[in-house]
Design a protein around this nucleic acid. Structure first.
Lengths: 141, 141
DNA sequence: CAACAAATGCAACAAAGTTGCAAAAAGAAC
DNA sequence: GTTCTTTTTGCAACTTTGTTGCATTTGTTG
């Protein structure tokens, strides 16, 4: 069932359905939270080449299947986009949370980023809000 | 005059005053906006070893002289902290702006990040707001 | 200006990311 | 299903980025 969803998603974005893409997309669907390139390599790396992972993430990004979450420690993470996203048209306007304890990153889809009033002369095209702290599962331990 | 400020800053943070540190700190003071490791290497790299740049930035970060600005393109940038920052005690609560045209990053010190109300179970320790768009100097051209 | 502590440069590595190209797999047409 | 075309993959080679240990140099302190 998750398998058919994977295929459906790939078809919808006009990406040809290959083992690698299926596997990586599956990882995103299974894993609640964001994944870094490294994570994916670890989880699927024995079956696929490093280069394939790079190219797959690249393709997913371009097609609007996933979006990237900035980081200040050189480990950019990626997370699934909601259905409304498509090529070029990202609607990636939620807050991202990174746990300082477990290191996991999650999309807080229910929290829309606030609009920021910029100084005269500046034009905003995208706003990213990155909150770090202690996540739900870490604080309940 | 900028030279004495550089020395003063280093002294205040109990870093020994060396040519490399002076040069790099000078770059930050001169250059309005944030600098990536690469930028610094380009601007000062012929005089100093790559490793020195890494270690200097590391030291500046730890002492609270600079703070890092997350990115989603693997080019973390650094910018000078305000005076109030010190070891451990960062007061780095302003909005960061990245220009999609010229690529420069600036601290919008006058814009304090909004407080974000998180879902139950989450605790915020830091909030980072990253706005991208067109900056002042690019839009006036 | 000694004596000590700290920072630097170098070399050697490890890890991350990129590119070109031949082989393999997917998609389309019959 | 077979064939043809297009796309993707894996591999190799390479570039860039980041790390570590150690001897040498440079700063700091009295």
């Amino acid at each position: 069932m998750i398998d058919s969803k994977v295929t459906e998603l790939l078809k919808k974005t006009q990406l040809s359905v290959t083992d690698g893409r299926r596997r990586i997309l599956e990882l995103f669907l299974q894993h609640e939270g964001a994944l870094s390139h490294g994570d994916i390599e670890k989880k699927a790396g024995e079956k696929f080449d490093r280069v394939t992972v790079y190219r797959t993430l690249q393709a997913f990004l371009e097609k609007g299947l996933i979006h990237s979450i900035p980081s200040s420690d050189n480990s950019i993470r990626y997370a699934l986009c909601k259905e409304e996203c498509s090529e070029g048209h990202h609607r990636d306007d939620h807050v991202h949370f990174i746990c300082n304890q477990c290191g996991n990153a999650t999309c807080l889809e229910e929290l829309v980023v606030p609009s920021i009033k910029l100084p005269r002369g500046y034009t905003a095209q995208q706003v990213e809000v990155l909150v770090s702290g202690i996540c739900k599962s870490c604080s309940s331990r």
